[in-house]
């Protein structure tokens, strides 16, 4: 345990310095844990509403995601755990779609998930660095570190985070568990991690793979030649609560 102790001392010393005003705030967090901005790779996604809204009642994306990531199926909707799910357009975009007269369009459903904000409030408030921004734009959770204070849930302006009020294993049948992906434990917060485990090895997010309508387009936002950029070209796109300047990475194509 030598390394850990040394690391702890180092961090302690750095905090000490900080308290004395000797170090700039951002230097205390080690470089790789901070988003640097202008990175060559910025993972992002577009939801093509023309395609998605047509598939009423379809939940292939959520089923694929929740199945592979061992998301517990909790009947108590108020304490449910969700990574990606469908909600009403009027509720997703209260300031635009929520105000149009056409009730049918307001109540149409499309997908919501973590927005993987560049300027993520959840990352800013986390007292242990359990939630952090990767340089490629993924807002990641380190489940080993989460103390379950739920400050991130108060901070997220999208309601994208879920807490494990229960032991999640109680809601996963033994044969339904994917042994290659960990479950979570009681008392930690979780959310979509953009399939970091797949993106890191050159794959695409599972929801994108599972969508038969081709409504979900993933790609590198900073690469003008990516599928995502081509999809965004020449079409209007909405982002959720853009006025908050969190810079969400999920675009909804009109």
């Amino acid at each position: 345990m030598k390394t850990t102790r040394r690391e702890l001392l180092k961090r302690g010393a750095k905090t000490g310095l900080l308290l004395l005003g000797g170090t700039a705030l951002y230097e205390v967090v080690s470089g790789s844990e901070l988003l640097t901005g202008g990175a060559p790779l910025r993972h992002a996604m577009a939801v093509d509403l023309r395609r998605c809204l047509q598939e009423e009642g379809c939940d292939r994306c959520a089923a694929a995601c929740h199945g592979a990531h061992n998301v517990p199926r909790i009947a108590d909707e108020l304490r449910a755990v969700k990574w990606i799910w469908k909600d009403e357009m009027g509720r997703i975009f209260p300031e635009t779609v929520g105000r149009i007269a056409n009730a049918e369009l307001r109540e149409k459903k499309t997908v919501v998930l973590c927005n993987h904000c560049t300027n993520a409030p959840c990352v800013r408030v986390c007292p242990t660095g359990a939630t952090f921004s990767r340089e490629d734009g993924i807002v990641m959770m380190d489940q080993h570190r989460c103390i379950g204070c739920r400050y991130c849930m108060a901070a997220c302006p999208y309601g994208s985070r879920s807490f494990n009020w229960y032991d999640p294993r109680r809601f996963l049948s033994e044969d339904a568990i994917n042994p290659d992906y960990p479950t979570r434990t009681r008392g930690v917060v979780e959310k979509c991690d953009f399939c970091a485990e797949r993106l890191d090895t050159g794959g695409r997010p599972l929801c994108v793979e599972a969508c038969r309508a081709g409504a979900l387009i993933h790609g590198n936002l900073n690469d003008p030649g990516s599928d995502l950029r081509r999809a965004l070209q020449g079409r209007f796109a909405l982002r959720r609560r853009a006025e908050l300047d969190t810079d969400p990475g999920i675009y909804y194509l009109l």
């Binding site: 702890l8 905090t15 800013r124 408030v125 359990a130 989460c146 739920r150 400050y151 008392g187």
Partner: peptide
């Protein structure tokens, strides 16, 4: 209030100066 009370010392083990908490 903590979901993982036994990890409370993570607040000091991983000090996060951007967090008001």
């Amino acid at each position: 209030d903590l979901g993982q009370p036994f990890r409370v010392l993570h607040v000091f083990l991983y000090p996060s100066p951007t967090s008001p908490m």
